[in-house]
Nucleic acid binder design. Structure first.
Lengths: 247, 247
DNA sequence: CGGTCCATTGAAAGTGGTCAATACGGGTGG
DNA sequence: CCACCCGTATTGACCACTTTCAATGGACCG
């Protein structure tokens, strides 16, 4: 049982999210202060990291893997309200209880800080506060972008939107040229996609099959996706295909 | 033509949003600095305050009235992604072009700051930066709350959700006891409600009629609403009726 | 009085949901 | 090694809800 392993403090300078996380703007002194209060935790795919309503005694950054924020109604309907990718921040300084479930969608490693020391440090370190503001504004933009998807797009457009986001993220991560096929593995089950898109898993499955039939995407197995023409996929998503290429 | 009137600088101490806006935590000195760069602008109902893609040369707070943030797809489908009430902040420090249309839903008065001086001041004034972070986190929570409404609720629940939010806000504003009927005027047209809820205006109209027929709400005219039992309305919204009463 | 804007209501059509059967793949244990 | 099982995914048939298209009504105003 190695679910919640505490890992050795490793060097922030070598951290894969050093330049994008909440610590991105910290100088050497500030990193030292952070290193003193940080610790790592690992979670297995499917594990709940934080339960909605629970006391939050830490905040932190996703180092690797994908986590999700989910809301649930009493009758069981659920809606994913955020996807947390590496470098994304979890938790809210100045609030005690968690407003959403946080779940590990894949295996996840987090860089955690106990909340109180982090809040104190933030009060003394404008670099952290400012970066957190910037990241929060970005998340707000992403949430609003997603409101358009949820409120106004058809099932097919919703699927295309999700695939195009994942495809473009992977394309920019692997530094490929801006044309040519994009290949990636879906990090989400059909059910998780449905929860993100406000659909049922059956509809997700049908629309993926339809996009495959129309050769907008190719599938090998159930998770391995090839996008021969990202512009075509973005048209299907109802987006301008000439928009900014890197998200 | 008095659309964009510059109004006399009035005293921040007397401002109706003094304790809730981005300046809420400022002390006297900081208020003086803000007063030096602030100016008022008025907008008529229906007027567009900022066009998506435009250069933003100011940021500011809604002093009175209601404004909306709206996204539009190429084919004309629109989704409202935020409602701006008095004290809400408009604009994003550190970004030049506006990501959404901002429209005056009712007549609106804004307290504006030219962007550059405001950014400079924010860099020197942690009270402002910290308050803005707090407000942004609140907006992010509200946006995510709304994602559940858009993604998972039925038309009837969506209408009930919107009415319950407006009703509770009005009840808390008028400091009424926590029981008894709530009366208010809808600040939105049926079309604006539809854009907010991801519905058509016909569906909005039908569901309002249905809630009226079932006596969840009473209507006088088209805009004047009485909610005899807020708990009942919240049940219809699919929310826990025992949740925190003040939003 | 006619025009415009906002809202309501009806009938028909279509999209996505529900329920149910089946398939696929990876693991375990006989 | 094969049988079995479980979680995940696909597909079909039917149905419900929301949209679409269209007609009508009321309030306000020139």
């Amino acid at each position: 049982m190695t679910l919640n392993t505490l890992v050795d403090h490793s060097n922030c300078e070598d951290c894969p999210i050093r330049h994008r996380a909440v610590c991105a703007r910290c100088d050497a002194d500030e990193l030292v202060a952070l290193e003193e209060i940080k610790y790592y935790r690992s979670f297995e795919a499917g594990q709940t990291i934080i339960w909605s309503g629970d006391q939050m005694n830490f905040v932190g950054s996703v180092v690797s893997g994908i986590a999700s924020l989910t809301q649930t109604m009493e009758d069981g309907r659920t809606q994913m309200v955020g996807l947390l990718l590496p470098s994304d921040f979890v938790g809210r300084p100045g609030r005690d209880s968690a407003p959403y479930d946080v779940q590990a969608t894949t295996d996840v490693v987090m860089c955690c800080f106990r909340k109180k020391p982090f809040e104190d440090l933030m009060g003394r370190t404008p670099h952290i506060a400012h970066r957190l503001l910037q990241m929060t504004l970005d998340e707000l933009d992403a949430a609003r972008e997603w409101m358009l998807v949820l409120g106004r797009k058809t099932a097919r457009e919703k699927i295309a939107s999700l695939l195009s986001i994942i495809a473009r993220r992977d394309a920019s991560a692997s530094q490929k040229g801006s044309s040519g096929p994009i290949v990636f593995d879906l990090p989400l089950t059909r059910e998780a996609m449905a929860d993100y898109l406000g659909l049922t898993l059956e509809t997700v499955s049908r629309q993926i099959s339809a996009l495959k039939k129309d050769e907008v995407i190719l599938l090998q197995g159930k998770r391995h996706v090839t996008v021969p023409d990202i512009g075509r996929l973005m048209e299907e998503a109802g987006d301008d295909s000439d928009g900014g290429f890197l998200v």
